[in-house]
Amino acid sequence: MPIESIAILVLAGFVGYTVISKVPNTLHTPLMSGTNAIHGIVLLGGLIVLGHGVDGVLNKILLVVAIAFGMINVVGGFLVTDRMLGMFKQRPGEQRPGERGADAREEGEQ
């Protein structure tokens, strides 16, 4: 068993838990979008398998699609998050009625 890998897995889980334990409600959606962009790292899996050589046309097509998917996830995710956060910056402090969670901030906070 790759015990080092499992150890890294467990520790990374705790890091993720600790980082997110306190977030204002208005930042929930951008944060979801940001973490969404980070799991686009699966792109590396496609790079590794394709880069170390595969035979067969179908394998290559599947991996190119996988890399493209991962890349869409990464660039799209970070750009969309930036646009979401930019929307917050334009009107600081102002409460917009349509903004989900904005008015629930008080009772939602623990």
């Binding site: 990374a12 889980g13 993720g16 838990y17 980070i38 790292i41």
Partner: peptide
């Protein structure tokens, strides 16, 4: 990266 996203 996967596990950080999984946990957070």
């Amino acid at each position: 990266a996967g596990m950080i996203v999984g946990a957070s």
